[in-house]
Design a protein around this nucleic acid. Structure first.
Length: 447
DNA sequence: TCTGGGGTCCTAGGACCC
DNA sequence: TCTGGGGTCCTAGGACCC
């Protein structure tokens, strides 16, 4: 590794030189530097259910027995969404099909998902950590970034503060979290994954060679199954191997993604901990696996309509309009395809979005048996922009008024309180999909 | 035996304009 | 007659995240 860990590389695309040196930051001046924490609920879905059950007097803690949260096999959603530590000991993995998991562990307890509970637990975690910084970013339902920069004066050294937070979550909310501390979101996140559960870890830049470079390359954020395979082919097995590979070579092999990975492997990442405003949302979608294979257009339209209702309602809730509609299809053979089109005029009206979705579906569907359908809208604008559009369409105003009336009835009396006649004779929920009451701009593949 | 649902970002190729 | 090239927009598909 040469003279300790001194890397000097020119990142052409950004035109700056990154000087990575062991001495750049000493322990003593951490109080003045950027400090980011990553708070991650351990086996979130499972822990939250366990905590909820215990509060209601359950005798067994799901976390102590081999158990998983998983969809129903009957409804064809039978995969493992979260697992307990005893279940993990049987080799059960997230994303695995339930019947396989049962084979590994015959007595496995499988409980259904409860998304409303998860949203509540997530909100509770958010409001607790809000006590420690005004800058919090929800990264997913169970992961949040906290910008601790400058907060040391109030709550002490980062590690001390992280322990306080972790212990408060355990006492007050009944589940454990891992907290990773770093100088940016990437290192904070990797620190949080070092060892679980219920732990605090640091990954400061001078710890990168000793703590991060020794890890297998697939432990790096953004290295998934395919990328891992590609990297192994060029003899890159650890994060350290990647960090010390020539950037030109990586760019040749993996394009700009290669450079991104190289930067991550060297702990370089500088995005801000950003609040989740509606402005950050890029798209809104709903998709569903249907209990049976759909073989006719009429049934497909009903599913698409139900999905569109929920998408459009969320879109209006976000006070936005969309300019692109896309439809996705997964066949019973598990083939996937999608079709999208830009709208002439942006809209948030259910019937307009559905009309486009139906048109797109008919254009792309080849008559195969359908397992899964999805509707997604993107190219979002604020709705104030669209109201002053070129067309003064009376019918449009009426449709908008109808939609907002339906929204407020559903808001008051529940999603099933009112339904469109096309769905009245059928077994689809009037509004399908949607996790909870709020939309967040969550989950970005780039931090 | 059977494989969810919510997202983001990047790339390649075609259309079209100058 | 033969044969441009750059820029931008659009769409499909593939990778990744939790």
């Amino acid at each position: 590794m040469g003279k300790d860990a001194i890397i000097k590389t020119n990142i052409c695309s950004r035109g700056f030189t990154y000087n990575y040196s062991k001495n750049r930051l000493k322990c003593g001046d951490i109080m003045n530097k950027r400090i980011i924490m990553h708070v991650d609920a351990n086996s979130a879905y499972l822990s939250w259910q366990a905590a909820y059950d215990l509060q209601r007097g359950a005798a067994i803690d799901l976390r102590d027995i081999p158990s998983v949260v998983g969809g129903s096999q009957k409804d064809r959603r039978g995969i493992v969404l979260a697992k307990s530590i005893p279940a993990k000991a049987f080799g059960i993995q997230t994303g695995e099909v339930i019947w396989q998991a049962r084979q590994k562990c015959p007595g496995l307890v499988v409980i259904p998902p409860n998304y409303e509970l998860y949203m509540k637990a997530s909100n509770a975690l958010y409001s607790l950590i809000k006590d420690y910084s005004p800058k919090i970013q929800r990264f997913s339902v169970d992961e949040m970034f906290l910008d601790y920069t400058g907060m040391g004066a109030f709550f002490g050294e980062p590690v001390e503060a992280a322990h306080k937070i972790k212990d408060r979550v355990k006492e007050e909310l009944g589940f454990t979290v891992n907290i990773g501390i770093g100088e940016n979101k990437l290192t904070a996140k990797i620190a949080g994954d070092l060892k679980k559960p219920d732990m605090v870890h640091t990954l400061y830049h001078y710890e990168i060679p000793s703590k991060m470079w020794i890890l297998p390359v697939e432990d790096l954020f953004m290295v998934g199954r395919k990328t891992k395979k590609k990297l192994k082919e060029i003899n890159i097995n650890t994060i350290g191997d990647l960090a010390n590979t020539d950037t030109k070579f990586l760019q040749n092999r993996l394009k700009s993604f290669g450079l991104l990975l190289w930067r991550y492997a060297n702990g370089i990442e500088d995005s801000a901990v950003s609040g989740n405003t509606l402005m950050n949302i890029k798209s809104i979608g709903n998709s569903t696996t249907i209990k049976f294979d759909v073989e006719d257009k009429k049934t497909a339209h009903k599913v698409l309509f139900s999905l569109t209702e929920s998408v459009a309602m969320r879109l209006r809730g976000a006070k936005a309009c969309c300019s692109i509609v896309s439809v996705e299809v997964r066949t019973s053979q598990l083939n996937f395809y999608s079709h999208q089109r830009k709208l002439f005029t942006p809209t948030c009206i259910t019937s307009e979005i559905f009309a486009m979705a139906a048109e797109l579906f008919e254009e792309c569907w080849g008559g195969e048996k359908i397992r899964h359908l999805g509707v997604r809208v993107s190219g979002l604008y604020g709705d104030d922009f669209v109201q002053s559009s070129l067309f003064d369409d009376r019918n449009r105003e009426k449709r908008e008024a109808l939609d907002s009336a339906i929204d407020s009835i559903r808001c008051k009396y529940g999603k099933s309180s009112i339904m469109r006649a096309v769905l009245a004779d059928y077994e689809f929920l009037p509004v399908s999909g949607g996790v909870g009451e709020d939309d967040y701009a969550m989950m970005s593949s780039i931090l």
